[in-house]
Simulated assay, not measured.
Amino acid sequence: MRRTPARRPTMKDIARRAGVSESAVSFALNDRPGVSEATRARVRRVAEQLGWQPSAAARALSGEGSATVGLVLARPARTLGVESFFLQLVSGVQEALAGRRLGLLFQVVEDIDAECAVYRRWWAERRVDGLLVVDPRAADPRPALLDGLGLPAVVIGAPAGPEPDGPAHGAISNLWADDTGAMASVVGHLHGLGHRRITHIAGLPELAHTRRRMACLRAEAARRGLPDVTSVTTDYSDAQGAEATRRALAAPHPPTAIVYDNDVMAVAGLSVAAERGVPVPGELSLVAWDDSVLCRSTHPALTSLVRDTSAFGRRAAEELIALLDGGPARRVQDATPRLATRESTAPPGARPPRPSGA
C-alpha cells in the first residue's frame, strides 16, 4: 500500500508548539534581534524536537524550479578513488542530467545508517528532488524510507531476493542487470577450459549483488560437478584483493582460476601471481568482473565482463528524470554483461603463448 509521504515541519508548526508568533520563530532561528534569549532557546528546542531544517541556501538562491538529484555512496572512501565503475557510472549520470540542466549532489558515507540520515536531512532541507540509489542490500531499509518521505528514486541494481520484479514502492524505479547470468557465463567459460578449482574474490558481503554472484557460483558448481569452488568477501580494495589472492595461492590445493568482483582487485591479483612466480594463464587463469582500461593494459590482458557502464548510468538518470516529469515507476532490465575472453584465461597447465618474434 502506498504510504502518505511525511510532511516537513514548518515555521508555523514551530510557532504553534512554542506558543509564539511566526515572526518570533523567524527571528529566533535566524539569530536576529527582537526576541528574548528565553524565547530563542524555547523556539530552537521545539525546532529540534520537530526535526525542522532550513531550506538549503544554494537551493534558495537558485530558485524552486532548479532541480537537484542526490547520490550517496556507503562505501569505504579509500576504495572509490581507484575503482573505475563508479567514475564511469557518474559520468553517464551527469551526461543525462546536464541535458536537463539538473544538478548532482554527491556524498560518501561510512555505512547504510549514515546514508539514511543523509536522505532524511536532504528531505528536511528540501535539498534534492530525487535520488539515485546504488548497492541494494539484504533487508534494505532505503526503499521504505524514501517511499515514506515521498522522494522519487531509481535503485540501480537488482534488489535482494530471488526475483527482481517484486512489489514496487510508489515512486521508486529500478534499473538492473543480470548478475546471475553474468556469473554463469564466467563459470561456463572456465569449466569449458577444464578448470575445477575456482575461487571467487567477491566484494562487500552485505550487498545484494555480492550474495547473488556467490549463490550463482555455488549453484553452477553443483550443476557442473565442480569439487572445489569457494567465495571470499572483501572491501573491493586492491589491498584486500591482493591479500585474498595470497591466501588462496598458499592453500594446499590452490585454485587454477580466480574470479574478481572488480578490475582493481584483479590487477592486484595478477601482481601477486607474478611475485609468487605463478604464471598467468599457464598455471592460473584470472577473470575481472567489470572491464576497464586497467584490464586491457595489463600483460597478459585480463578476461573481463564488459558492459557500457557510462550508458548504464545515463539510463538510470533518464529513468529518474521520467519520474520527476510525473511518469510511473518502472522496473527495467539492462543488457547482461558479456564476457570478453583475453590472454589471462587458458586451460590449466597450458603453456603461455610465445611472444611475437621469439
Rank of each mutant, 00 (worst) to 15 (best):
M1Y: 09
R2Q: 14
S23M: 15
A24K: 04
D31A: 14
Q49P: 05
Q49G: 10
Q53N: 05
A56C: 08
L61Y: 12
L61R: 14
G65Y: 04
S66A: 10
L73I: 07
A74L: 03
A77K: 02
R78D: 06
T79A: 14
T79S: 12
G81E: 09
E83G: 05
Q88D: 15
S91L: 10
Q94W: 11
A96Q: 06
G99K: 06
L105S: 00
V108C: 08
V108F: 11
E110F: 03
E110G: 02
I112D: 12
E115K: 01
A117E: 11
R121C: 04
R121A: 11
W123I: 10
A124P: 09
V133A: 07
A144V: 08
G148I: 01
G148L: 02
V155M: 15
G157C: 05
P159N: 07
D165F: 02
G166D: 04
A171C: 05
T180P: 05
M183G: 03
G188D: 09
R196Q: 04
R197C: 01
R197I: 01
I198M: 10
H200C: 09
L204V: 08
H209S: 12
A221G: 15
A222H: 14
A222G: 04
R223M: 10
R224Y: 13
D228S: 15
D228R: 15
T230R: 10
T230Y: 05
S231G: 13
T233G: 08
T234R: 13
S237N: 04
D238K: 09
A257H: 03
N262M: 00
D263W: 00
V267M: 00
S271A: 00
A274Y: 00
A274E: 00
G277L: 00
V280T: 00
V280G: 00
V280C: 01
E283K: 01
W289K: 06
D290K: 02
D291W: 01
D291H: 01
S292T: 12
T298L: 03
P300G: 01
P300H: 06
L302N: 01
S304I: 02
V306K: 05
G313N: 05
A317H: 12
A317Y: 13
G326Q: 13
R330P: 04
V332W: 06
R338E: 15
A340T: 12
A340E: 14
T341E: 15
R342A: 14
T345L: 14
P347H: 12
P348Q: 09
A350R: 11
R354N: 11
A358Q: 03
A358L: 04
